[in-house]
Design a protein around this nucleic acid. Sequence first.
DNA 1: ATAAAATTTTAGGCAAATCTAAAAATCAAA
DNA 2: TTTGATTTTTAGATTTGCCTAAAATTTTAT
Lengths: 219, 219
Amino acid sequence: MKYSVSEENYLKVIYHLQDQSGLVSTTSLAKALKTKPASVTEMTKKLKSKKLLHYQPYRGFRLTQEGNKAALGIIRRHRLWEYFLAEKLRFSWEEVHELAEELEHVRHKKLIDRLDAFLGFPRLDPHGDPIPDKDGQLATADVICLTELPENTSALISRVTNQSFSLLEMLRQRNMKIGTPIEILKRNAFDESLDVRINRQRSINLSKTIAEQIFVVVT
Amino acid sequence: MKYSVSEENYLKVIYHLQDQSGLVSTTSLAKALKTKPASVTEMTKKLKSKKLLHYQPYRGFRLTQEGNKAALGIIRRHRLWEYFLAEKLRFSWEEVHELAEELEHVRHKKLIDRLDAFLGFPRLDPHGDPIPDKDGQLATADVICLTELPENTSALISRVTNQSFSLLEMLRQRNMKIGTPIEILKRNAFDESLDVRINRQRSINLSKTIAEQIFVVVT
DNA sequence: ATAAAATTTTAGGCAAATCTAAAAATCAAA
DNA sequence: TTTGATTTTTAGATTTGCCTAAAATTTTAT
Ligand SMILES: [Mn+2]
Ligand SMILES: [Mn+2]
Ligand SMILES: [Mn+2]
Ligand SMILES: [Mn+2]
């Protein structure tokens, strides 16, 4: 019912890794948590014994229902604090993730529900990621990766899943934020970069690496 | 420069105990921290080696300048979060202390300074305790204990230093909060209880035990 | 199918913070 | 001032989470 900070970090990271690949490997988790594979094996054994994940030695693991629910609780707290930091304390979107990494571990149902109400029950965090509600329900948005957007089709930037400080800082400096209109003018075959129009005004070039991190909704 | 949650709790509690008695004893600290004297001895040895407190084996200890500064930083965070919880999230004053006990350990200068600004640089927390400013300065208020207030002298409730949930809940239910007008009608010799008038209206009886926890400013 | 490479687990340790039990020091009283 | 009670410290364990190095297992390549 109540987990340590370390256990919570494992649960959250496993949840995110699962979203991409189905089963999560020891190495990928070790890398994501900046720890060593041996440590991961020990912790996953513990989490298994607490019935938070399915785990067969050498085979990888995934969250149980219980583990999933716990992870969503942590993600709810993380994203609500991110929203608070950005909207109320005026932090920029590249700064909030790191701070929320600590605040998310203050775990009192009443605190987080009051915070939710104070913020007006926001549905998206500053990066466009959905905020699970009281019951752990996640709103689903039908976004596509910017790299999949056809040319000359207007869309809105709706989500940036990568939390890298420098990526987010870069986007902010280019006035690209959640809700900003965007359109692909040209795909450059040589480096797969994109020439895009931002805010129906400025035209800039985005490397493939950056474009892959941006998700949009066609309007 | 950066201390563990445990070290922070020690520093804060030593600060408060020092305020009352000069030198702090191993047993009193153990009691306040709900731990055992043996654990206190080990931790204080560590804090001494970090030059956060003066400590002679068997003789008791007190904070160094450095330790004092650190303690004030923790108290600043604690009280600002208490203010936030009470003013913004509408928690009652008996609920905020416990929540702030966890939030106070999220330690980022910029976060706390932004929170301070967001709250409008409050000077007192919900219990009337002064909030140290950015530089650790504490405003001093000239309060007296309710038990010292002369009869028929109007005063304002300005501080309740005891953080007991049930004491604070009791006072709230009697409409006694920071800023509430109060006046002593009669001292009862038998049990040293006080008949007081609250808000220039209701007259109630306060036991000596309760009266000792209330501090007032004569108006 | 086998050998080499990669991944994962086990074994053995370490540091922080706690505990209990026993020893040492201090304090209080007769 | 000696003794008995109290306080404090030391000794030795325990728990959590992490580490390195070595062994076990699985995957990949010849
Ligand atoms: Mn984040
Ligand atoms: Mn986010
Ligand atoms: Mn408090
Ligand atoms: Mn307070």
